[in-house]
Design a protein around this nucleic acid. Structure first.
Lengths: 262, 262
DNA sequence: AATCCATTGTCCATAATGTGGACAATAACC
DNA sequence: GGTTATTGTCCACATTATGGACAATGGATT
């Protein structure tokens, strides 16, 4: 029953753990830096913490093996110990299992790259990717790619599927991180509103030049958004008419996944 | 107060992070509980922390998604967010890649189950397993199995390959966790001494009744133990003569892996 | 249903922990 | 060699996190 998705409303956030929360937040910021990691400065900027505090926490996490530092660049990145801890869990999540067939079929039918993206905390995380048959494919987003909720069409879709209050809260929390993706809170909020009205998220200006993305959301039985289903293609391939077709296919696929995970 | 708990006594243990260290320590204890997790009581026992402290930290980790609690049993376990963070890293470690072929060949030649086990903090972690061809196989230890350094032959081997001072320190740190595996510090220390003299670790009384294990260690270029290579079989299959044969094979395999990771 | 016992959950006064401003040390330029 | 950008360290101090004590919950047992 619990497919392990992020807890939504914390009625009364526990106290007595400032430092732990901060450390975990830093881990998530680092995770967004992927394999290559991030320099201290950027970690600080993605945060409202002071530099000494970030520095100290990162170095403790290094000593504990959860963070490592690249020899050359001095950038901080997620360390070996994290996948080691992850071995304590079953290798494949229920969502991934449920979406497997549907993703394959849909990407074959549509011909463009499909992405399955989950929410994790205040981020989106790409957990699966299926490449289509059309000769030009948008591959820039890899499995493991993590971005603040709001900067991708998947993120907008997930925020649109959340209660307005919570999406606003997240947009505010992520505000310091938006600059790095050339967007801002106002833009994100209006994109969310648009997506709600439309029933799906669109990004005419993808994170990659000349691409366009469309995302639908997948909800759990409780009504919480569990994931987003995204198609990305070069913009010319997603004109108004084809957009309608593709949206229908995505909505159908999302519905099927929803049924399977219940 | 004292509670000198997580002490990853590196050159200069940083200060100002007690809470973070405790939280990470708890994560590792939970990881040892695998998929099914552990009840609060056992987490406390594996620790020198007070129950309220463990409780508070676990619940914060739950709010943050790094820990989850099983509906039925109320046991605490590693949460979905941990594998999500792990996606930030390349999927296969250099060690695993290097050991792949050698493990396959060796397990075929020997016929019994082979395990590759790494050290992670004060634990051993099984990261690969190859099943042999002989009809009776010891499969009780799965990939992802985590135990305090010292309670398995792999753990003893790794401790034996460490400087005496550090192995003693780890044995002391893990002491509260030994009871759960029916051993104690004295036993572990003498097993380490034996392994050092012999050049490999043996466990006549495996964690599973009637099995026997032999482990050799793999060192990095710096001389630090990187992993252990273990064979497990029903005891009757590892009499004195075969033990010698098997040890030679294991030592050779370990040497080959060492060459590859340099 | 009433009693026990084991385990889990919560409170809060208090000490120890973690904080961040200010300064120091590098590294990266030119 | 100077100048700037980035990273690293220190320490007085307020806040955070601690754990003893008490409360609640959930099985057993009679």
């Amino acid at each position: 029953m619990d497919n392990g998705l992020p807890t939504t409303l914390d009625p009364e956030p526990r106290q007595g753990a400032q430092a732990i929360r901060r450390a975990l937040f830093l881990l998530r910021v680092l995770a967004a830096g992927g394999e290559s990691g991030l320099p201290l400065k950027e970690v600080v900027q993605a945060t409202r913490l002071s530099r000494p505090t970030v520095h100290r926490i990162l170095h403790v996490l290094m000593e504990e093996g959860l963070v490592e530092r690249h020899e050359r660049s001095g950038r901080y990145a997620i360390g070996t110990q994290v996948p080691e801890l992850a071995l304590a869990r079953p290798s494949r999540s229920p969502l991934l299992a449920a979406a497997d067939d549907i993703l394959r079929e849909t990407s074959q039918r549509v011909g463009d790259t499909l992405f399955l993206t989950v929410r994790t905390g205040n981020d989106t995380l790409c957990v699966d990717r299926r490449i289509g048959s059309y000769p030009i494919q948008v591959l820039s987003i890899a499995v493991g790619a993590r971005r603040p909720l709001g900067v991708s069409s998947a993120g907008v879709a997930i925020l649109a599927a959340l209660p307005a209050q919570e999406s606003r809260r997240i947009a505010a929390t992520n505000e310091p991180r938006f600059a790095g993706y050339r967007t801002d809170r106002q833009t994100v909020l209006s994109e969310i509103t648009d997506a709600r009205r439309r029933g799906y998220g669109v990004r005419e200006v993808g994170l990659v030049q000349g691409t366009k993305s469309i995302s639908t959301w997948i909800k759990t039985a409780d009504g919480d958004p569990a994931a987003a289903l995204t198609i990305s293609a070069v913009r010319t391939r997603l004109g108004p008419r084809r957009e309608q077709e593709v949206v229908e296919t995505l909505l159908k696929a999302a519905y099927e996944v929803e049924q399977k995970i219940r």
